[in-house]
Design a protein around this nucleic acid. Sequence first.
DNA 1: AAATATTTTTAGGTTAGCCTAAAATGAAGG
DNA 2: CCTTCATTTTAGGCTAACCTAAAAATATTT
Lengths: 224, 224
Amino acid sequence: MKISPNKEDYIKAIYALNGAHEVISNKDIANELSVSAASVTDMNARLVKENLISYYPYKGVQLTALGVRVTNQLIRKHRLWEVFLYEKLGFQWNEVHDEADRLEHASSDKVTERLNDLLGNPQYDPHGGLIPNADGTIDEEKITLVPLTAIEVNQYFIVKEVPDDEHLLNYLFDKGISINDKYKLININAYDGMLTIKDVHTRDEVTISEKALEKIKVIQLMNG
Amino acid sequence: MKISPNKEDYIKAIYALNGAHEVISNKDIANELSVSAASVTDMNARLVKENLISYYPYKGVQLTALGVRVTNQLIRKHRLWEVFLYEKLGFQWNEVHDEADRLEHASSDKVTERLNDLLGNPQYDPHGGLIPNADGTIDEEKITLVPLTAIEVNQYFIVKEVPDDEHLLNYLFDKGISINDKYKLININAYDGMLTIKDVHTRDEVTISEKALEKIKVIQLMNG
DNA sequence: AAATATTTTTAGGTTAGCCTAAAATGAAGG
DNA sequence: CCTTCATTTTAGGCTAACCTAAAAATATTT
């Protein structure tokens, strides 16, 4: 049941590319991890054997339920170390990521939970990222949702909730906006109030009208 | 200049077998690390390339000055993590070793020194081991030497100093007792006061007479 | 629909660390 | 000094991760 640091990095990369919800291409993973596409094919075979991903030849991979859970536990370790580095060791928020990336592979569950206690069971890391639970679940209700109108230019956010309004849903669908995707607010038009937002993963920019804003609930993030 | 976790484990093992001061056999290293003797020959070649050990074919290896310094820096990391686990995370002294063994490979110098600050620049780990300096040196004068008479049954100690007395030196040499070796006090004979001590590495038990005790200076350890 | 471009897979190779079995070396005893 | 025994080294193989180059599959463009 123990998984190698390299495999941990792979499933984290897939997760970061939204692999909990959609099929992720070989190329994107190769890109994210700075390895060759052939290496990704290699590793995919290994991850399938451990039931961490589903593999669709020539299409890509998606995390299994187990894969999501394991990745969330990794992210928990990562983010708790980030809090520790930030709060206890006086690191700056931009320095903690790389250090935490190494420590996360070296900490047992026991150390992780003791660390959680030391830090007072924090809910967010220094970047504003939600810290998953020890069992690899995420408490969605802990998240403070705000209307999209509360976001300012250059801030990042994740779309979390839209009302069950057929016209609005169609509108957002046409624009390619999805639940759980991460965006950056690029511009608020001074004249008509329309927002230009950019999908962090696809890098597509779309413009949405003022009319929809109040109903879209998002999580505001501290950075990308 | 970065060295792999495996190599780090090798030089730590050589150091633990007193490889800072004497030539250590292939077999002993294989034993310490639970690998084959052939694997040790393999790794020796790699460590020589990095100038961490001197290699004497068919004889064994000894740490270079660089090897000693690097190992001490590793031991510093290990022991600081032990203090952290013990003092901040509430682990027991017998639980800290394995956890620290993993964390030591994952912590940068920067994290190590911040950790040192957080812990208030401690001098000893929970087992009583002296924490080396950041530059890989050891402040010998910090060590509190006590006569062997101060040790009690079942305690561990390291022989650190004997007077320049030819007869006593010969006596100890015949018994196989060496400077910097670690022992456990097994028994104090109620009638004649002779000590039975056991070499932690060779597992040899020897008996030494009361006469020699006061002159032998040792470091008392909290455990093995 | 065919041609072209992109992506994925396969094939074959590398390095770090490990292994076993056999050969070489060194140490110890008669 | 020579034989025996222990130890070390060599030889040949293994797995996890990587690589490049070529072949196969898919996507896009005309």
